[in-house]
């Protein structure tokens, strides 16, 4: 009520106008690059080369999309990306919540040493080469397993969920145990249903991380075309678009020819279409999960 009665002073009006203008400009800067690529992706590629495409296609064409969707690698990449994301999210949720539950029980004898072993790993990292050697020695190079097994548990997420579990009233858990429920039943029927907002946040973060990851494919599976992923394929296109940018005609033709689309499209336009294909799934989903990730992040920011 008070706020409605605020005085409409000159100073207030000026501030609000400036602030609103600034925020609108900022929002424009945030969305423009994607809108521009959207326009480019729907514009005839040879026309795009003439420049001047900003927010709307000049000569509408679906050619870029048909070429991208006909690339030999795209189905493997799409299926791998989806399966990889689903497996990573499921294994993460199952393992992280089990571990977090055990570590949230004060009576658990090994709670402290296990927590310490996990927390320490947040502060050091053996490094790229020793990790690569480990994957090689475990025989994980060139396998699908390397996509989810090393990422199965994130210490940070364990701590976030554990913190949340600790806030659940002890009496709830005690009474379930009185009624004869074992730890697994307490976890699945009492604790986990109460953790759904936090679990949703973590599922979103893990899903985004997995969907966007390029480095694991690059480092471990780059000579295994059957295990390619969308970011990896996009990077290949990006690389050829950049070469084309430097060496206009020849390289662009070569890259286009490689995708079987010489003379009808260019790497830059293909890249725009590919960018849309990989980004749209996540961009459609995140606004609906906003209230979850805001609360999830706030819990994470609180010290254990």
């Amino acid at each position: 009520m008070r706020k409605k009665l605020r005085k409409l002073t000159v100073e207030n009006v000026i501030f609000t106008t400036l602030n609103t203008t600034f925020l609108l400009v900022l929002a424009a800067i945030m969305v423009y690059p994607m809108l521009n690529q959207l326009a480019v992706s729907f514009n005839d590629a040879l026309d795009t080369v003439r420049g001047g495409i900003y927010l709307w296609p000049r000569i509408f064409s679906l050619r870029n999309y048909t070429v991208v969707l006909n690339m030999s690698s795209i189905y493997a990449a799409f299926v791998n990306s989806v399966v990889k994301m689903v497996v990573t999210v499921v294994t993460n949720l199952v393992c992280t919540s089990m571990l977090a539950y055990a570590l949230s029980r004060n009576e658990y004898i090994w709670r402290k040493p296990i927590t310490l072993v996990f927390v320490l790993t947040m502060y050091f990292n053996a490094g790229m080469i020793p990790n690569y050697m480990l994957m090689r020695n475990l025989g994980l190079l060139g396998t699908f397993t390397v996509y989810w097994l090393p990422q199965m548990i994130s210490t940070f997420n364990v701590i976030v969920i554990r913190t949340y579990m600790k806030s659940i009233p002890e009496s709830l858990i005690e009474s379930a145990k009185m009624d004869g429920a074992g730890e697994f039943r307490v976890l699945t029927q009492i604790v986990l249903p109460l953790c759904i907002p936090t679990l949703a946040t973590i599922a979103l973060f893990v899903a985004v991380g997995s969907w966007n990851a390029w480095f694991d494919t690059f480092l471990y599976n780059s000579n295994k075309p059957s295990l390619t992923t969308l970011p990896y394929e996009l990077q290949n296109l990006l690389a050829s678009a950049m070469t084309a940018g430097r060496n206009q005609q020849g390289a662009s033709q070569a890259a286009a020819a490689a995708t079987g689309a010489s003379n009808t499209t260019t790497p830059a336009s293909l890249r725009a279409a590919f960018t849309m294909v990989t980004s749209i799934p996540i961009l459609v989903v995140y606004p609906f999960l906003q209230r979850y990730f805001v609360s999830g992040l706030t819990i994470g920011g609180v010290k254990e």
């Binding site: 990851a213 950049m242 996540i282």
Partner: peptide, 26 residues
């Protein structure tokens, strides 16, 4: 403003290199 956080670095670098390119390349 949250939107770009959900894009991968590959997408972002693609956007960055386009935005920073010559006017004829967008």
């Amino acid at each position: 403003t949250y939107m770009p956080h959900f894009l991968s670095w590959i997408v972002v670098t693609g956007l960055v290199s386009t935005m920073l390119a010559l006017p004829t390349s967008g």
